[in-house]
């Protein structure tokens, strides 16, 4: 083994396709299971959230308009890029959480596969959930699911990579853009995933990643009037009532999920029904 001093990564936020430091200038210490220092990720502020929402809103129109085939390919590209960096993610999961390498490998494998699974939904969800409605009159009437807009998500603490994938993939595959707060204790997977995103042709602003404290960011997410929906799967259920109550101000759609399934995609889609006469 060489005595080379390795080059450590500075973990930053990921907003609008760039890697800014938090505007607050704050960081916090991430330690591994044995209490050894790992990194100083950003302690994102409400202003970082604000910037991320602006980026997500700006990106929504273009991402929403992208063809389902295109969305599917980009999600698949995320899987490709993740696959190529397996070792890095396994390493980070082991380092931070202290799980065995074998267990970390399973998580990374599942994450890649989960991305592939969601990628395939891009061009199927409309046919699954859409409908041609047989109304009693000379009208063509159909219902299609459409993206809701800007969704915020609080990723679960663990598993730090797979949970993160489940927090972002179903949201973006439906055409939404997302602002996600990564696992506080294990944010490395999420921040490294930003590198995957940056090499995957995903338009800037579609996924925006914050690191920091749930207690600090969640209330601002709940009250932000330009956030349309909120995935609180990563939030302690004791906090749900408060978030839902605050979110009522703009009638945010606020959900927590127990598993991955197509319903998770549809939860952040709106059904649009279109009527048109049939005649000469």
């Amino acid at each position: 083994m060489s005595n080379r001093i390795d080059v450590k990564k500075t973990y930053k936020l990921f907003i609008n396709g760039a890697f800014p430091r938090t505007e607050s200038g704050r960081t916090y210490e991430v330690k591994n299971a044995k209490g050894i220092f790992i990194a100083n990720p950003c302690l994102a502020s409400r202003k970082d959230l604000r910037d991320a929402v602006v980026a997500a809103r700006a990106a929504h129109h273009g991402w929403n308009k992208a063809t389902a085939y295109n969305k599917g390919q980009i999600l698949y590209r995320l899987a490709e890029m993740l696959e190529g960096r397996r070792a890095q993610f396994v390493d980070e999961i082991v380092t931070v959480t202290g799980v065995s390498k074998a267990k970390a490998e399973i998580e990374v494998t599942d994450s890649v596969d989960r991305l592939v699974w969601y990628a395939g939904w891009a061009d199927k969800i409309s046919s699954l959930s859409g409908a041609l409605n047989p109304v009693a009159g000379p009208y063509y009437n159909f219902t299609i699911p459409e993206s809701m807009g800007v969704i915020a998500a609080i990723a679960p603490e663990t598993p730090s990579l797979l949970g993160f994938i489940d927090s972002i993939a179903p949201i973006i595959v439906g055409g939404n853009t997302v602002v996600v707060l990564a696992s506080t204790k294990a944010p490395l997977s999420a921040m490294s995933f930003a590198e995957v995103i940056a090499t995957s042709d995903l338009p800037a602003g579609v996924i925006n990643i914050l690191t920091g404290r749930k207690d600090e960011i969640t209330p601002w997410m709940a009250s932000h009037m330009d956030i349309d929906g909120l995935d609180i799967s990563g939030l302690s259920s004791k906090k749900h009532a408060e978030v839902k109550s605050t979110g009522a101000q703009n009638l945010k759609r606020i959900y927590s999920f127990k598993s991955d399934e197509p319903g998770r995609i549809l939860a952040f889609m709106e059904n649009k029904t279109v009527w048109h006469p049939i005649g000469l």
Binding site: A131, N133, P134, V135, A136, G137, Y139, N141, T143, N271, T273, V274, W275, H276, P277
Partner: peptide
């Protein structure tokens, strides 16, 4: 509602 308005039907969400 395209080229119509205020149409309702039980089959239509």
């Amino acid at each position: 509602w395209a080229n119509t308005f205020n149409k309702f039907d039980p089959a239509s969400p």
